[in-house]
């Protein structure tokens, strides 16, 4: 298998390398890829949509359908992950670990024992023992708000600088994952629950599709944001810029919730009790 695979891949690589010799050199300004469609985008995106960042303009305006179904794809991925992994059955023969807060003594309670879940003096810790690390927790407490503000900036400032809904949403999700890594999964789920995540996922997709349907209701094409000019009270060009912002907010919400949901399900194997 190994030797046959190597022979097969070397034949395939030689064929591909032979094909590559016909390609234009790297960075050729007159190559076919940059001489047919892209000059239109480069020359007209600012005058059409008032967005200096061409990538954002093409992503959310000219290719709006593509991005909408991209959002639906990642939404589907989160749902598939839930269907594959989520389980509500408690695992057989498992013990739980608790820490007495005042003294720092660790308790191990076997299955069937009385668990001090509702007591104020005990906190549940992961069964893979994690030391009580003050430095990491304090650092994360200080860093996480700045990460979240930066993520919101990335979403809102995607018109003028690199960034947009996808990047900002992923960074926002990463801040939640960082919280779950340095504290524990149960506390994170208490703040941002599973139902809330599912709601945010669906709401993000709904904002995107709803913007398109609103444009249709205003007697224009699906996702043609210039129809929203009357609602915003601006000219059609600026309305397209504002429409892109609304859509990016929807994408950011959906991506953030999907990333958090994927982490919850993968890190706890679907049980949502003990994380990384």
């Amino acid at each position: 298998m190994k030797r046959g695979g190597l022979v097969l891949f070397s034949i395939m690589g030689l064929l591909l390398a032979w094909g590559v010799l016909e390609f234009p050199g790297l960075g050729d300004p007159s190559s076919p890829a940059s001489s047919h469609l892209s000059p239109y985008y480069i020359q007209h995106s600012l005058t059409d949509t008032a967005v200096p960042n061409m990538v954002t303009a093409v992503l959310a305006d000219y290719r709006g359908y593509d991005t909408m179904f991209e959002t639906i794809v990642i939404f589907t991925a989160a749902i598939v992950c839930i269907f594959l992994l989520r389980t509500f059955k408690p695992p057989a023969s498992r013990y739980r670990m608790y820490r007495h807060m005042a003294t720092g003594i660790t308790l191990r309670i076997e299955k069937g024992g009385k668990t001090p879940d509702d007591s104020e003096h005990f906190e549940r810790i992961d069964s893979v023992w994690v030391p009580h690390d003050l430095v990491i927790r304090t650092t994360c407490r200080m860093v996480i708000p700045f990460i979240q503000v930066f993520a919101l900036y990335v979403i809102a400032h995607g018109h003028h600088s690199p960034g947009g809904g996808f990047q900002g949403g992923v960074i926002l999700g990463a801040s939640v994952v960082l919280f779950a890594v340095c504290f524990d999964l149960r506390r994170t789920i208490r703040y941002l629950g599973e139902k809330m995540c599912a709601l945010l996922c669906a709401l993000g997709v709904l904002i995107y599709a709803g913007t398109g349907i609103l444009c249709m209701g205003l007697q224009s094409n699906f996702l043609d944001y210039s129809a929203l000019a009357g609602l915003f009270g601006t000219d059609p060009v600026m309305a397209r810029s504002h429409g892109i912002l609304i859509v990016e907010i929807g994408v950011g919400m959906a991506v953030m919730a999907v990333m958090v949901m994927l982490y919850y399900n993968l890190a706890s194997a679907g049980r949502h009790d003990e994380g990384l």
Partner: peptide, 26 residues
Amino acid sequence: AVDVAFTEASVGAGISTVLIVSAVLR
């Protein structure tokens, strides 16, 4: 490709690694 680099830095180097490490844990 600044936008693509930004996405890869947050997605590929950030979230993907965390997901693979958590799957290795499980």
